[in-house]
């Protein structure tokens, strides 16, 4: 990639600037049609500010982008096991520190981005992530959350929401899909006292790219949770991938906010809903059309929809309270 000076000024850009930026995640990758994570990775790589090293845990995006002899990455990219995205990033950072000291690295600063899916973050990668942020390595961890282990055959993960049917939590006459709710991973990361934690969705791309840049500019670890629908695993229409990320924000299933040094702040799309609560759509608007929730629209499982609505409202109220308390 071309050499760029590291800047700390506020990053201003238009849609056309972003469209013109060279691709970091090249076409020809073998993600399914309408893949949410593929769009997330492509856009995130357009927010880099200079020399960057990417490391990735096993997951959909690692599999589709590196089928031998092809690679979709135009950045230096490293893949190891499922649990080690954050451990890898710590190693890269430590190695760069030593090499800089020895004068073998010419660049002024090299950013490190670690990508992992919800399996590699919520479940398998959590202890490595927790350790890496506790040690305070300077890297940005990006979680692309497609709410399940999609590439191995749509199994449930800690990120799968309540009521979603997966191959390991099938919906039937007894079980209404997954019986537990989504793990509040962002709260777990905030509890690590990180300087920067944020959530974003690719529909609000400007907001997402700004958060990526902020995460890179922070000295020390930063965590970014990005919502990325999977049409294959959600059994939804590929064309509606981006629409679901919008509906998730509007129904407050996935509010977008950032936590800077422990201070909560809602980002514009969610703030608009806070200011005008009548704009908040019922959760059924978001659920309908997704095949994994199809069984919820029967009278037998109506109570699950009610529970989901209640849990979503509770989490939204809790978030608003946190914003108020830390203001």
């Amino acid at each position: 990639m071309e050499e760029q000076k590291v800047t700390t000024q506020e990053w201003k850009f238009t849609a056309k600037d972003i469209a013109l930026k060279p691709e970091g995640f090249l076409p020809g990758h073998r993600a399914c049609a309408g893949c949410g994570p593929a769009n997330v990775l492509r856009m995130v790589m357009k927010a880099t500010r200079g020399p960057t090293i990417v490391t990735e845990a096993t997951g959909c995006m690692e599999v589709v982008s590196s089928i031998y002899p092809y690679t979709s990455w135009s950045y230096p990219w490293l893949h190891t096991a499922f649990e080690t995205a954050a451990a890898n990033a710590s190693g890269i950072e430590a190695a760069l520190k030593v090499l800089t000291k020895k004068g073998k690295v010419k660049q002024e600063h090299i950013d490190i981005i670690a990508f992992a899916g919800d399996g590699g973050t919520y479940d398998i990668g959590l202890q490595a992530l927790s350790g890496a942020v506790e040690r305070g390595h300077d890297f940005l961890f990006i979680l692309y959350d497609n709410e399940g282990y999609m590439n191995t055959g749509i199994q449930r993960s800690g990120g799968t929401p309540l009521g979603a049917a997966t191959t390991t939590t099938p919906a039937g006459s007894v079980m209404p899909g997954k019986m537990q709710n989504k793990k509040p991973i962002t709260d777990i990361m905030v509890a690590h006292d990180l300087e920067y934690v944020a959530t974003a969705t690719p529909y609000y791309w400007k907001d997402m790219l700004q958060k990526v840049r902020k995460g890179l500019e922070v000295e020390g670890p930063a965590f970014l949770h990005i919502f990325a629908p999977c049409p294959r695993g959600w059994r939804s229409e590929p064309a509606k991938t981006m629409e679901y990320t919008k509906l998730a924000v509007e129904s407050c299933v996935f509010p977008v906010y950032e936590v800077v040094k422990g201070k909560y702040e809602l980002s514009t799309p969610s703030k608009l809903i806070q200011l005008a609560p009548q704009k908040k759509i019922p959760i059924t608007e978001y659920l309908k059309g997704q095949g994994r929730y199809r069984h919820l629209f029967t009278p037998q499982h109506q109570h699950v929809v009610d529970t989901l609505q209640r849990l979503t409202d509770e989490r939204w109220a809790k978030l608003q309270k946190k914003v108020e308390q830390t203001a």
């Binding site: 056309k16 972003i18 013109l20 691709e23 949410g36 492509r42 791309w205």
Partner: peptide, 18 residues
């Protein structure tokens, strides 16, 4: 030419040529 399609494409198959 708002280039939204360029940004939302998961493939990078749509390009803006100023």
């Amino acid at each position: 030419k708002c280039v939204m399609c360029v940004l939302y494409c998961p493939e990078g198959a749509i390009r803006w040529r100023p």
